[in-house]
Design a protein around this nucleic acid. Sequence first.
RNA 1: GGGCCCGUGGCUUAGCUUGGAUAAAGCACCGGCCUUCUAAGCCGGGGAUCGCGGGUUCGAAUCCCGCCGGGUCCGCCA
Length: 564
Amino acid sequence: MFLEFKKEVEQVLKKALKRASYEYTELELEESEHADISSNVAFSLARTYKKSPAVVAEEIVRYLEIPSDSDDTLISKAVAAGPYINFYVSDFFLHETVRKIKEGIEHVGEKKGKIIIEHTSANPDGPLHIGHLRNAIIGDVLVRVLKRAGFDVETHYYVNDMGRQIGVVVCGAERIAFAANKKADHAVADVYIAANRLVDANSEFLKDVEALMRKYESGDEAAVRKYEAVVKKCLSGIQTSLQRLNIRHDLFVWESEFVRGGAVEAVMEELKQKGDIKFDGSGSALLLKLDGIEKELVIQRTDGTSLYTTRDLAYHRWKSDRCDRVIDVFGKDHELVSQQLSKALEILRVKVPEFVIFEFVSLPTGSLSTRAGRYIAADELMEKIEQRAYEEVDKKRKDLDEGKKLEIARKVGIGALRYDMVKVSPDKHITFVFEDALDIEKKGAPFIQYSHARACSILRAAEEKGYVIADDYDASLLREESEMELIKKLSKLGYVIGSSELKPHLVAKYARELAESFNLFYKDCPVLNAEEELRNARMVLVDCAKIVLSDVLDVLGIEAPEEM
RNA sequence: GGGCCCGUGGCUUAGCUUGGAUAAAGCACCGGCCUUCUAAGCCGGGGAUCGCGGGUUCGAAUCCCGCCGGGUCCGCCA
């Protein structure tokens, strides 16, 4: 509803500026602590018209026409506060917000186009670690935000099955057995680490790896079977972890499909014709000159085989034919690659993707490396954080049965982990400290979940007393400061989703603020002990808060417990 | 060496795109609130020359230039 309010303010303000015959370039509307929405336009006008900003603001306000007696205006008043023009919401705005949330028609984005978003895409050579976790969680929240905003979203996991690393594992698996008692992706990692030691120790092994890779690229059946066995084994483990995190992909796209299907070759041919191509001086590798990028891009090895970037070009061409927007969630180390990709796609006249680049996660001991065995596995983290959450629940709710406690611990633990990862802007570097991550007490997610549980608790208690949420309630009884603030906050979910499309941390921030607003209301306004009319209105408000809290948690991919 | 990102109370951050009203939160610290719907909560308090130096502007955490510190990338890895 806040979005509608903003639009109405825009219209009214535009008209007033026209009547006052001011030429403006921007309305400069901003959220403000002093008003529901505020305009700074008087500053820039003052400059061009050589008047004082306060005078201009006064003047504009005189020209504003706010239909004060009308029933359906969202604006109650506008006042000049020095140079600022402050707008305030009307009772109708508050009523409408409550009504629409209650009826489930608030915050529903209109149908937009189709988006393909790629995230996680960890190499199938071991389990997900905390770096992949950041990718996966940012990506998943993005998916949820875009879906809410009305897009048709398809989620991809791009499987890098053609790299040397995978060759090393597959070849290694011929000599080293997978541990039978381990989760699949962890067993693969063990072989990977052991095989890398073979690489370092013995050059014969590396030759075998390269031979196997060539066979795989040419589609040799035995090689394909070996690869599939290992890659699928690893992916099954990774999917189990993702599922536990509440993340799923619609499609797993294998890199090799583009090689064997001929798409990579087609891209290469086209680049040779349309691109600025030359052979490297020393070898015969193919170099592609890209606009604005100093270094040329190697698009073909000396031996004629393809490289990661070339295969990625084929993948992106395929994606872009199937949708309106392509979004990739990449680590910072892929930034240059993503620029090269964009430039090369321009040459191919393919839609350029949008990138969400996130900074690295490192450990206090240094950067992460699967190969060196220096990582914290996502599974281990999830296990420990759920355990810690369980200790909390156990301490606080001795009355609950075991199953219930475990369920709450799972929701709270995973929620805390997800919130922690998404609350920070993607371009902030993170040093991961295990102990801090496990400190459930000071996490954002449990705070929000707790507010939701409180709302549920009130509604449960109401039901026991035989109170039902009434269809006719008098929203005008909700005049307390904390009630009105809560409603205004509730009205902003759609607005936040619309404006934080590629900035998932803003949703996390909003969720926290909403929970805070609910807690203030909770403290100030008794629901069940209020006299009937007021109780009815407040019960409706509690129900609305519950709905929006669970909605925003859902956008964050965090489950909303009914009690905790 | 060059490109990109980050630098905001003791710690972790929001705000920076589009410059404006006392710089906003959480954690930690100090003090208070459970005979009313869950205290994983609420209230109050101390604590910031917004990395440093210039510049633009009526006005800079925000824009521009330089520097310092940290991260990351830089042709046949992915």
